[in-house]
Design a binder for these strands. Structure first.
Lengths: 149, 149
DNA sequence: TCCTTATTGAAAAAGAATTTCAATACCGAA
DNA sequence: TTCGGTATTGAAATTCTTTTTCAATAAGGA
């Protein structure tokens, strides 16, 4: 039952921002932090319910809002929308998403500084951010016919 | 009343794929093709209604589905989700989105071939696609306090 | 011009996210 | 440790978005 180090970190962040550390939040944070796939609110709900059968879906939405405001999670882009979230990568790390099973891994992307300033000067935009994602099929899904869930 | 060259192109594509060229589709295509910002279905609905007051929102959704299947439009990622669509850029072109007014311009991104194959060999994923977007404030919105709509 | 059938808009339904509200649980103060 | 104020919670109701159903209409080939 080794606990992911990020759990403590996230809970501290919540506390430092005036939020109480509740059972519901603890469960949600634990599952979010350790998930290898981007999750829809309902997925997360189903998973967390196993640890806390009384948990409500509303609490999932509310907690996700809070974590988002603290910049701890990010929406993951997929062909059919951005309904899934995952812990936010830092700096130059980006997501590689399996379009079959949803599993993700991170990779270190190029340095976008030069491209960013080039684009800025060409367009007049004040460029502040970028998002890069790769899509593909993970090794497991390449082997077996259907994506392992 | 100069017509955007893409309109004819898109309508031909629809026709070539067994779809009929209807008044509703023509109006929707015209507005989509010339829009400088990514639009939500409802936005598009409001705009198109001015040209065709009888148009139904359902038809917007259905036509967007068809155009998406033909690969003519793409979802645009924003901080709060992917509810907007825009005509798809080709090849190495990517979107720079104004987070204030939504206006977009395109830029030619780096070549991702090398990064893509590097990531593929490191992770074992069969990398098939990527998405890159830049975010910032457009010149107009930098000047005036609130984003011009 | 006629006829077949894809397409349409309206209404209903399904799904996702948000708001309201009374009961509960967190956590600082005593 | 207990107590009390208040943030947080789950359930229910509501809102917003998207999809499905269906009869009427219009596209376009014969």
């Amino acid at each position: 039952m080794s606990e992911h180090p990020l759990v403590k970190e996230w809970l501290s962040q919540l506390q430092a921002n005036g939020y109480r550390i509740t059972h519901a939040r603890r469960v949600i944070v634990e599952e979010l932090v350790k998930s290898q796939k981007a999750l829809e609110p309902v997925d997360l709900f189903t998973i967390c319910r196993k640890k806390d059968p009384a948990l409500g879906l509303v609490t999932i939405y509310r907690t996700l809002d809070q974590l988002d405001q603290l910049g701890l999670i990010q929406r993951v882009h997929q062909a059919d929308g951005c309904h899934t979230v995952m812990r936010k990568q830092n700096g130059h790390e980006h997501l590689l998403v399996c379009t079959s099973c949803g599993r993700t891994v991170t990779f270190c992307g190029d340095n976008f500084e030069s491209l960013s300033s080039k684009v800025a000067s060409e367009t007049g935009f004040a460029v502040s951010d970028h998002m890069l994602q790769f899509f593909g099929i993970c090794p497991e899904c390449q082997g077996q016919k259907d994506g392992a869930n």
